[in-house]
Amino acid sequence: MSIAFDLLLALALLWSGGRCLSVDRLDRAIVLFIAFGLLMALAWARLAAPDIGLAEAAIGAGLTGALLLDAYGALKRRKA
């Protein structure tokens, strides 16, 4: 049962990571990256590393995502 979940999580990680690098719209890429960060947090939980999971959810997905979206917004405003 848990191996099925692990495989599904592995596929989701690879898919979101790959789409994040290949999708044509930048805002979608950033949102996919945030989703990727949250999936990483799940992977850390599966690896019995709740400390890293907590940090990844708060920093990797939350703070990095906010920074990237803010930069995207600022660059877009300047272009407009």
Binding site: P50, A55, L63
Partner: peptide, 11 residues
């Protein structure tokens, strides 16, 4: 238990 300065700072 799991937790600590890093997570608290991030929160």
């Amino acid at each position: 238990r799991p937790g600590g300065a890093f997570q608290a700072g991030a929160v």
